[in-house]
Design a protein around this nucleic acid. Sequence first.
RNA 1: GCGCCGUUAGCUCAAUUGGAUAGAGCGUUGGUCUACGGAACCAAAGGCUAGGGAUUCGAGUUCCUUACGGCGCACCA
Length: 559
Amino acid sequence: MDYKVYIVERISLEGVSKEEIAQNLCVPPDSALGDFALPCFKFSKTLRRSPVSIAEEIASAFEKDAVISSVTPVNGYVNFKVDRKGLVRETLGRIAKEGDRYGSSDLGKGRTICIDYSSVNIAKPFHIGHLSTTALGGALYRIFNFLGYKAVGINHLGDYGTQFGKLISAYKHWGNKEEVEKGGIHAINDLYVRFNSEATEEMEREAREYFRLIESGDKEANDLFEWFKGLTLAYVGKIYDRLHIKFDSYAGERFYTDKMQPVVEELKEKGLLQESQGAMIVDLEPYGMAPCLILRSDGASLYATRDLAAAIYRKQTYDFEKCLYVVAYQQNLHFRQVFKVLELMGKDWAKDLVHVAYGMVSLEDGAMSTRQGKVVWLEDVLSRCVEKAAKVLEEKNPALENKAEVAEKVGVGAVIFGALYNNKIKDITFSYEKALNFDGETSVYVQYTCARAYSLLAKGGKAELPANYEPNTQEFDLVKALSEFPETVRAAAEKYEPSLVARFCVDTAQKFNKFYFDCKILQAESDEARAFRLCLTEATLTTLKNAFTLLGIGVPEKM
RNA sequence: GCGCCGUUAGCUCAAUUGGAUAGAGCGUUGGUCUACGGAACCAAAGGCUAGGGAUUCGAGUUCCUUACGGCGCACCA
């Protein structure tokens, strides 16, 4: 039941369209006022009457029924209250029926959405700065799938560039097989870092030559590169498993090596390509942007060239309705340029490309810097959070059986939740103190709430929803919160903002805890109340589990 | 210099896209329940929404402007 639609249907006001009414129908700040409200100030202008009298007219003309129980005009607003019993029956019935599909939809049926996220660099370990794109992209991937879309997760690997020539050069000079096999990705990264600080001009030349060799298919260079790539993918694969992240494609930059020339040709044919300072560019001056560089003066392709080829390839391959790039706002200009060039090429789908920009991560003593060793590796953050969780678990629940498994869910969940709780555009200053704090608005609070619910259900058993139960305030507030979950998921998708789901979880958990504190459940005052509260508890658990699953966070039964 | 983004309680952040008395968590102070799991609950204190102007019935939200901060601006990705 869509209450808004229902209410709009039943309002008629001469001179004002249903659309206008629907647009203005909102939710009052305080639920004591009502569940929905219609401000009449805008109508006052066209109707040339006071908003107060319009509100009064609407209220008196509105016929109350089993769905809307009261309609009151207040200072130019019309406040509607829904019938509580009806909302309760409707919401709890739906949650019980839909179970782990509650909140899902077939909205996106037959529609494909590509999501480019995480996009790791070969030979570079995963640091805290990669967390946002990974957590955000993973959440969006699941949210769109939940809404019936076919989401295509793409890990656009950073596997192209002279940096790999540098790496091979460094390995040849200072590395050896045993060390790399033992030290894995960090050993490779150390070689790369060392190259950047110690390389001679001779080595720089050598690096360019090695990169050329990779490109031309030289066996030794390619074997080394593939070896590094394999080590990187095995390493990030483990992290992705812990974060519950999946991809449908690992087509990275190298994949587009042979797909760039046709793009360059097309740009030429369409008269967009021009020479400037020895390089080939697309002039974007008329659009207030710096030119988009397509080919370097030595003829080599650039980042933008590959992104153009990738966008075209994705459109051809997946026929997406939208293609999201979950990349930090740093690259704002880059994407605006690429999207504009595609538009100039006559790709009408360029409007469907979306840069989902998020804020930057820094450390308390400034920006991260691999060279200065000012880096926080994600694996360290994960292990410290899991350790902390294990320690707290040992204190609070020493008898718990599967402590390691639960600590993993709690610790990793806290890391993911921390990355998803705030608006994505906000910059983040990482600190262990914050990351390891499990109090307050955190995933741990939500998980604890779920554990309470599990415990109640284990003791209370299965209950049948009483047909005619009149809920009290705490109960009703909780039901109302649960009823808003499907809309929250939709809004999160529409705004590419998983934080809405994360905030929903905390808000709902708070309401549940209030309800829990104020209402006896197992020892309720009547059989009816007991049954109702058990049903409400189960519905809350179902909804929170669904929400956490979307975020990629597990919910332990006990903790 | 130009462009994009941000600025809300001591700190970290919300605010259903222009609606009614701007809300949470942390921290501080004081409380609650003979614990259905205290990783809980309640209350108090804390705000000229960075400053100034404009738009209108109504602005944290839109526009202009100033300040402060972040990011970007030609051959890295």
